[in-house]
Design a protein around this nucleic acid. Structure first.
Lengths: 315, 315
DNA sequence: CTGTTAGCGCATTCAC
DNA sequence: GTGAATGCGCTAACAG
């Protein structure tokens, strides 16, 4: 790797002007098939890769989008990210993946960095302590995951649908004392929405409504279940698979095989360890795809910003 | 966000030439403190962010390094990545995170993409089916994680040390029939090295040597344990925490509370679900830091390429 | 269909 | 200590 080749080198090597090489690179139809073949041959032969920096500078678009997840090892966000990458790559965009670790300050740092890199847009996974106010600057080039906010496009999972689907199954199976373990309502979607779906279902079906909320780690699932469970409980619905993992451990210790446990996420590990736990996928991957598509639409001015997308998942 | 400001705008706004602004940006000491202050004020006031693309093009260095992990949700690689980011960010580099999903073809795609982006270097987490031969092109700008290869710098975890440490504890606790669950030896480090450490310890201490290897998912841990376990077994050493998770499930089902199980990785989830399992951290995060440091050293020509680093972990 | 030209935003000479 | 000029590799007019 002595000195990277440039478009000019390729031009000389194939006996054409650099704009022709540029045209070949950009799939411009106005190129003689013969010359195109020749140029492409030279490009392959020398393994030439056009410089994105130069292109970015010229076109004022880096063909890059930032994705800020809360945690890289979150199973659910991971699925969404895979969906995003699928569509981004397909459309010729690259992604810069970053981790906020639920820290608003890190989000700001990352956004600044992404700005310097000249990203075309950003997809941000929301979390409760996130200050959404000063995201205004990004407005039409930002998609918020799992949280609605005025003026900003967002994609939410089908929180309510997932919970409802689970509850219907439990109800059909004859369960009548169904408790709920959730996360604090400061979390608008995973917290408030899923709890709300539970409460609503209970009201509709005249079921007793018993629940507790806390943080979203396994320990919390364990602790809350320990607090909430009664001898009469015949099902425990958890807002996430992580909580369900903790709850499962408690139920196992207590030998409460009579209690049907459920989660949200279709986490493979949960399924392996506790196969009896019922879990649904609220369409994480699909949500990721939608988010990326919406972002690209906005960037290409085909769509107004500020769509609030809440896909309903297919069973 | 109308039109991004440029260095020239800042120059005009603060009544200086653009080269002075550039000097301020690059901490050039040859700048009158007064002017510096003035320029910096204007920069802050307008939230100006210099364009990385332009800078990259001019300096022929994007201050960017690619990191290709096998899976984003791998707990161990995650820890290493955090270590890398720590040093990269501190030195003013950004990172582009990508996922190979154990697919050599994806690695090639990602490398091509990184080349176009003009990355300064790449850190690549190795896996068994990876074809290392054509990595030669990257040679001195590449660090390989968890695998040695001639001519290429690498950072390995302390595979043998971790296994040995575990075995010493078990031995000290009076365990004498210690079985081993590993991964195929096609995996040079997690596979071959860890098994080898086990075999060596057995030989040294005249212990029976019983082991099986397979893939590195939980199911494999479960299956292999089922095959390997005998009534006489009093400990099972697993090459990774993932395997240990599967093994733990089997032991639990069989009520084999007499068997001491161990893993490698210090995975928090494993510790929560099966607190009795003993696990050590082979220094993932530290390995990540070392990898990043070595890469930067090479990039800045301070060090020859091809260092083979194998840190020993501190208890 | 193709070559020539002119910048994109910045760092880096070289004058002053 | 500072400003003016040059070019990094590329795309997008504009001519031919």
């Amino acid at each position: 790797m002595t000195k990277r080749l440039t478009i000019l080198d390729i031009a000389r090597l194939s006996g054409v002007g650099k704009s022709t090489v540029s045209r070949v690179l950009n799939q411009d139809p106005n190129v003689n098939p013969q010359t195109r073949d020749r140029v492409e041959a030279v490009i392959r032969e020398h393994g030439f890769e056009p410089s994105k920096s130069a292109r970015a500078m010229r076109t004022n678009s880096a063909r890059l989008v930032g994705i800020i997840v809360s945690r890289l090892d979150s199973a659910s966000e991971n699925r969404a990210v895979r969906g995003m990458l699928e569509v981004l790559y397909a459309r010729g965009y690259d992604a810069m993946l970053m981790e906020s670790e639920f820290d608003p300050a890190k989000v700001d740092e990352h956004l600044a960095l992404l700005a310097r890199r000249g990203v075309d847009g950003v997809i941000l996974f929301a979390f409760s302590s996130l200050e959404l106010e000063h995201l205004r600057a990004w407005q039409d080039k930002l998609i918020l995951m799992a949280r609605d906010w005025p003026q900003i496009s967002s994609v939410c999972y089908d929180d309510q649908g997932a919970i409802r689907q689970i509850l219907e199954k439990l109800y059909a199976a004859g369960r009548r004392q169904i408790d709920f373990i959730g996360v604090d309502q400061s979390d608008a979607t995973t917290g408030a929405l899923r709890l709300q779906a539970y409460q609503q279902f209970c009201a509709e079906h005249q079921l007793p409504c018993r629940y507790l909320t806390g943080s979203l780690d396994v320990q919390s699932g364990y602790d809350l279940t320990a607090k909430l469970l009664t001898p009469a409980t015949d099902a425990v619905v958890c807002a996430t698979d992580t909580l369900a993992m903790g709850a499962a451990k408690y139920l196992q210790e207590q030998q409460r095989h009579d209690v049907q446990l459920t989660g949200v996420g279709n986490n493979p590990l949960l399924h392996f360890l506790f196969p009896q736990v019922l879990s649904v996928d609220p369409g994480y991957k699909q949500a990721g795809r939608l988010a990326a598509e919406q972002l690209l639409l906005q960037l290409e001015q085909q769509a107004e910003p500020c769509a609030q997308i809440a896909p309903s998942h297919d069973l």
